[in-house]
């Protein structure tokens, strides 16, 4: 990993071009999951792999500057809380847990759309940050 940071110009240039595209594709998969294949889980993994590619080519410390481990550690529970929060919101509006129609009682299907979007966002945030957490803790131990 260390040698890559000084040499391998081709790898560096190609990775630099690919990383933003991977991150953009992850966002596409995240927010287009209602219409095509994909959703929060896949989007989270793709997003994390974009950052991991960056870490493999430019070094772990560079990636840690982009997404510091303390931030990642706080993002992981945030996704779960966002998901469960939507459920608690529907409970507070006298509906069943995770009944998204509660978000917009006038237009139940609009509420469903919004609820699914929020819930998938929660899944994406948790999965991406847990994957990054795994990678940081595995790769970080190798450094002496």
């Amino acid at each position: 990993m260390r040698a890559l940071q000084q040499e391998h110009v081709v790898l560096r240039v190609i990775a630099k071009m690919l990383v933003p595209m991977i991150l953009l594709f992850a966002l596409y998969v995240q927010f287009h999951g209602d219409y095509g294949p994909g959703g929060g889980f896949q989007a989270g993994v793709i997003f994390a792999s974009g950052i991991i590619l960056y870490a493999l080519v430019f070094g772990l410390s560079a990636a840690r500057q982009v997404l510091p481990p303390p931030v990642v550690r706080r993002l992981a529970p945030l996704g779960v809380l966002l998901y469960a929060g939507v459920g608690v919101f529907s409970l507070l509006s006298d509906r069943a847990f995770l009944d998204y129609s509660a978000i917009d009682p006038e237009h139940p299907s609009h509420g469903q759309h919004l609820g699914i979007l929020l819930v998938e966002l929660g899944v994406g945030i948790t999965v991406a940050s847990v994957m990054l957490m795994l990678f940081y803790s595995f790769a970080g131990r190798g450094r002496r």
Binding site: D34, F97, Y100, P108, S109, Q112, H113
Partner: peptide, 18 residues
């Protein structure tokens, strides 16, 4: 009920949200 074209997403996120 939901009106989202991808039924897999509907099932996973809404009917089986729990």
């Amino acid at each position: 009920e939901v009106g989202i074209p991808n039924m897999v997403t509907t099932l996973l996120a809404s009917y089986r949200g729990f």
